[in-house]
Structures are given as C-alpha cells and as structure tokens.
C-alpha cells in the first residue's frame, strides 16, 4: 500500500501544509471576480459595438469594424499586457479591476459579433410592425428586437462566457494569483506537478459545470413562448 501512503503525503504537502489550499480558494475568488465583471463589461461593450456595426452612419460602422478587427486579430494575452503595462501603467487600481477591464474589452469584441448576428436574425417585419405602431427605433429595439434576439443568441453567449472564464487563466502574466497561478505556485513550492495541476483543472471544471447548469435553467425559462 505504498502508493496510498505516497498519495496521502503528497496531498498533505500540496494542500494542507502551510494552508496551501487557501491559495486555491483565494484564486477561485479572483477568477470569479474578474470573470463576472469582465462578463458585464463585455456585454455592455459588445452591445454598443454591435449597434455601431449595424448603424446607418458610416463613421459608427467603421468604429465597430475596427474594434472587432483589432480584438480578434491580436492574442488576448498581448491585449492584457498592453492594457496592464501600457494603458493603465500609471493608474494605481487593484490588479483584478484592471484585468477585468482588459477581459471586458476583449470579450466585447466577440460578444458584439454575437449580438450583431442575433439582431440580424430577427425578421425585418418585426421592426416594421413596431415602427408602424408609432414606436421609436430605440423602443422597437428594446421591446421587440432584443428580447427575441437574446433568446436566439443565448446558447452562443453562454459559450462565450465559458471561454471568457478559461481565458482569465492568463492573468498570472501580470502577477495576479488566480486558480491557475495558485496551482502553478503550489507546483513550484512542492516540486509536485500532478496534484496541484489536476486540482486546478477540477476547480475550473466544477465552476463551469455549475455555470452551465444555471444557464441551462435560464434558457429553458426563456423558451416558454415557443411550442417547439
């Protein structure tokens, strides 16, 4: 029963000694915090950029195009480092806030395309019906187009949230201790690779599984108006 003893001792060294499990717990907090605020910011930016891309005004369309072009054309780790070390170099905010902003900006580029596709998927007749009743274009967007578009894009949007959470695993590059960095730290401190890295993977997996379950419930309640 050598390997059981070995397992026990490695587990003890990785997670119990010096309260190392707390690194992972705190890392989880950082990941959740960054992901959550980046998500909100991403939705906001994504929606605004989508409206720009769909606008009748050429300069606005150009803004939308350039934004998504730059975000999609450069690696997110490069964007993160530019925002952290260049744009916010002289700003003394908490690291996690700057990271959340960086990921929000990044996610916004992808979310905007999802919104754009969603809005375009709604039949033109819906807009015409709304406008013919005397609603303004903003009222038509909020009351008629968006609720339908959101329902259509919800699964794709969930996908983007999941990608976003996993993408935050690069915040170690700017010295922030998230789940990934915590696992890595334990690996360096203990010279044990298997335990901390598998623990890291399990934590991400459980986090995303929970999110998927919740979002699945939300989607189901959104579908009550169709009889499919």
């Amino acid at each position: 029963m050598d390997w059981v003893e070995n397992f026990k001792s490695e587990f003890f060294r990785c997670f119990i000694r010096e309260d190392r499990y707390m690194l992972l717990v705190k890392g989880l907090g950082v990941t959740v915090k960054i992901s959550f605020f980046a998500l909100l910011l991403g939705i906001l930016i994504g929606f605004l950029i989508a409206l720009c891309s769909l606008s009748k005004k050429k300069p606005l369309r150009a803004i939308g195009k350039v934004y998504t072009d730059i975000i999609r054309g450069t690696p997110s780790v490069t964007q993160l480092m530019i925002i952290y070390f260049v744009v916010f170099a002289s700003v003394h905010w908490s690291k996690w806030i700057i990271c959340a902003i960086a990921f929000g900006i990044n996610s916004g580029g992808y979310v905007s395309e999802i919104f754009r596709a969603g809005i375009l998927s709604i039949d033109k007749g819906q807009t015409e019906a709304g406008r013919s009743l005397g609603l303004t274009s903003a009222q038509t967007m909020v009351k008629i187009i968006l609720p339908q578009a959101l329902k259509n894009i919800f699964p794709t949007l969930c996908n983007e949230f999941i990608v976003l959470i996993k993408e935050t695993a690069i915040v170690g590059y700017v010295g922030l201790m998230d789940i990934q960095k915590a696992g890595d730290f334990i690996k360096s401190a203990t010279f044990i690779a298997f335990m901390p890295l598998i623990a890291t993977a399990v934590i991400y997996y459980v986090l995303i599984k929970l999110l998927t379950l919740i979002l699945g419930k939300v989607e189901k309640s959104m579908r009550k108006s169709d009889l499919r």
């Binding site: 019906a129 406008r131 013919s132 009743l133 008629i144």
Partner: peptide, 15 residues
C-alpha cells in the same frame, strides 16, 4: 404613425 394603423401580409405579430 400612431394614427395610421398598418396590417401586414405576414402578420408580423411579436412571437
């Protein structure tokens, strides 16, 4: 438009 109602070929109800 508020005083001009319109009915479309494809109904365009809000689903």
């Amino acid at each position: 438009r508020q005083k001009m109602g319109m009915v479309f070929q494809h109904f365009n109800l809000f689903p």
